[in-house]
Design a protein around this nucleic acid. Structure first.
Length: 415
RNA sequence: GUGGCCAUAGUUUAAUGGUAGAACUGCGGGUUGUGGUCCCGCUAGCGAGGGUUCGAUUCCCUCUGGUCACC
C-alpha cells in the first residue's frame, strides 16, 4: 500500500482530503498535529491523547537529542514505546531550532537581528545567528552554520553539539518516528536575498544527503517516511526553485517551511500559491507551524495543505487562552475567536468554555472553576484547557474533511 | 510604665521643603516547525489631627498603630 492516498479534491476550492498509511495507523487528512516536543504533549499523557482521538503527534529531534538522548530512547524500544503512544509520530529535524533559539538569544540581548513585525534589512550574510543559551552564563555562544552542518550550544547546560544532515537523520532513525524531517536551515525573512539563496542552496544539498542517509535505515521493522522542506523565504523565484528541487528528490512528503509560514498568513498563502503547482499532488503537503488561529488551518487547507502543526493551541491553553467556536453564543462571553479564562468576567461564569463543545472539559467543568484553577496556578487548569484547545483543532479538521469529501468546503469556510 | 525606632499602592519598598519611582499582586493585551518561559499596556499610595512655611509626604507637636530595649 502506498504511503499517501489522495481521496478527494473539493471542486470549488481545491482543498484536499486524503489518508496517510503508516505502520502505526492511518492518518486522515487534512490533519492538525499536536506538538509534543519532549515526548509529551505538555500537561497530557497518551491516554488523554487517545481520548481526544489525536491521529498523530510531533516530537523534536533537538530536544530529545539533548535529553534524554536518542540512544536511551532506542534502547527503550523507540519513541512509541518510550511514551506509550502506539499511534503515528512525526519528529522535526532540529533545523528550526537553529533559527528559533537564535531568535530567543537575540531578544535576550536586545540585539535586533530579525524583527518579525517590521522586517529590517540586515547584513545577515556576515552575521551568524546568535544562538542557544537561555542561560546567560553561556552568553556569546553562537550558532555556527557551515556546509557541513550546524554547531550549537545546548539550552540546558551550554555544552557544544553538532548536527549534520546525516546525524539529524540518524538520530531520527533511532527515535523511530513514522515521519521524519530533512535537516534544513530556516532563514529569517529579514535576511537579504543573497544570504537567503545561499541558505536555500545549502538546504538543498542537505536534502540530498538526508535522502542518501535515509536509505541506510536499519533501525526498525516498521517504515519511516522522510519529508523534504522547501525554503526561500519571501522570494518568489527562490520559492519556485526550492519547490522544484525538493519535489524532484525521493521524499515521501513535501513540507513548506520558513519564518513567514504560520506567522504571516498573507505571506503564507501567497507562498503556497507559488509552490503548490510545482509540488507532486500524490504526496502529502505539510505547512510547518500553521495554526495560531483556527482559521489559519482553513486558509492553508483551501490552498492545498494536508497537514500542519502549531504550538499555539497548547501554549495558549497553558496561559488560560481557549478557542471559541463561531457558534459559541448563547449567553457566553468572549471576544473574537478565543477567551482568556483568567479574565475577571469568568470568575462567576457557570457556563462551560463553549456551550457547543463536546470535549471532556466543556462537558464537565465551568468557566468559574477553570478561572479558579488558573488563578490558583493549579496544573489541572492547564491540562483541561489543553484538552479543550486540542479537541477544538482536531474537531475543526474532522468537519473540514467531511466538507471537502462532500464538495462543500467553500460554504464551510464561510461559516 | 519608660526610652528608641518605624508608618509611602493590596504587599515589599525608593526618593524628595515645590503634589512621589520601582518590584510583586491586581486588571487587560500579545504568543510559529514549544521555555509552564517571556514581552507590552493599565489601575493603584504619602496613618489621623494640629503647627512652622508662599508651599509639608518631607521639619516640629499630639494621637493612633507597629516594633525593639529596659523595668
Amino acid at each position: 500500500m502506498s504511503f499517501f492516498e489522495l481521496q478527494h479534491i473539493d471542486k470549488k476550492t481545491g482543498a484536499r482530503a486524503g489518508v496517510m498509511h503508516t505502520d502505526h495507523g492511518d492518518i486522515e487528512t487534512p490533519c492538525f498535529m499536536p506538538v509534543g516536543t519532549q515526548a509529551t504533549v505538555k500537561t497530557l499523557d497518551s491516554q488523554d491523547l487517545e481520548n481526544l482521538g489525536a491521529p498523530i503527534i510531533l516530537g523534536n529531534t533537538y530536544h530529545l537529542h539533548l535529553r534524554p538522548g536518542e540512544d536511551l530512547i532506542e534502547k527503550s524500544g523507540g519513541l512509541h514505546k518510550f511514551m506509550n503512544w502506539p499511534h503515528p509520530i512525526l519528529t522535526d529535524s532540529g533545523g528550526f531550532q537553529v533559527f528559533s533559539l537564535g531568535e530567543q538569544k537575540n531578544k535576550k540581548q536586545n540585539v535586533i537581528l530579525s524583527d518579525r513585525r517590521e522586517p529590517k534589512d540586515l547584513d545577515s550574510s556576515t552575521t551568524p545567528l546568535r544562538g542557544s543559551a537561555q542561560n546567560d552564563k553561556t552568553q556569546g555562544a553562537l550558532v555556527k552554520i557551515t556546509d557541513d552542518g550546524v554547531e550549537f550550544r545546548s539550552h540546558i547546560d551550554g555544552s557544544k553539539h553538532f548536527f549534520s544532515p546525516e546525524s539529524a537523520i540518524e538520530i531520527q532513525h533511532k527515535l523511530g518516528a513514522d515521519i521524519i524531517m530533512a535537516f534544513d536551515e530556516c532563514t529569517p525573512d529579514s535576511a537579504d536575498e543573497k544570504y537567503t539563496r545561499e541558505a536555500m542552496v545549502r538546504t538543498h544539498a542537505w536534502a540530498k544527503r538526508c535522502v542518501i542517509e535515509h536509505q541506510k535505515n536499519t533501525h526498525h521493522d516498521y517504515r519511516q517516511f522522510l519529508f523534504g522542506i522547501i525554503q526561500g523565504a519571501k522570494h518568489k523565484d527562490l520559492r519556485e526553485e526550492s519547490a522544484k528541487f525538493i519535489s524532484a528528490l525521493d521524499f515521501d512528503g513535501i513540507a513548506i517551511g520558513g519564518e513567514s509560514i504560520g506567522y504571516n498568513m498573507e505571506a503564507t498563502t501567497e507562498i503556497l500559491d507559488w509552490v503548490m503547482p510545482l509540488i507532486p499532488a500524490d504526496k502529502p503537503h505539510y505547512t510547518m507551524g500553521v495554526g495560531l488561529d483556527p482559521d489559519d488551518l482553513l486558509k492553508v487547507v483551501a490552498h492545498g495543505a494536508d497537514m500542519f502543526d502549531c504550538v499555539a493551541p497548547t501554549r495558549l491553553a497553558r496561559h488560560g487562552m481557549v478557542y471559541l467556536s463561531p457558534s459559541a453564543g448563547e449567553g457566553v462571553r468572549g471576544s473574537g475567536s478565543r477567551l482568556n479564562l483568567t479574565n475577571a468576567t469568568c470568575a462567576t461564569d457557570a457556563h462551560p468554555i463553549d456551550d457547543t463543545c463536546q470535549c471532556h472539559t466543556c462537558q464537565n467543568y465551568s468557566r468559574a472553576y477553570l478561572h479558579h484553577l488558573f488563578m490558583a496556578q493549579e496544573i489541572t487548569g492547564m491540562r483541561l484547557a489543553t484538552i479543550h484547545n486540542i479537541h477544538y483543532m482536531l474537531n475543526l479538521m474532522r468537519t473540514a474533511r467531511q466538507a471537502i469529501l462532500e464538495d462543500k468546503f467553500e460554504t464551510f469556510l464561510k461559516n
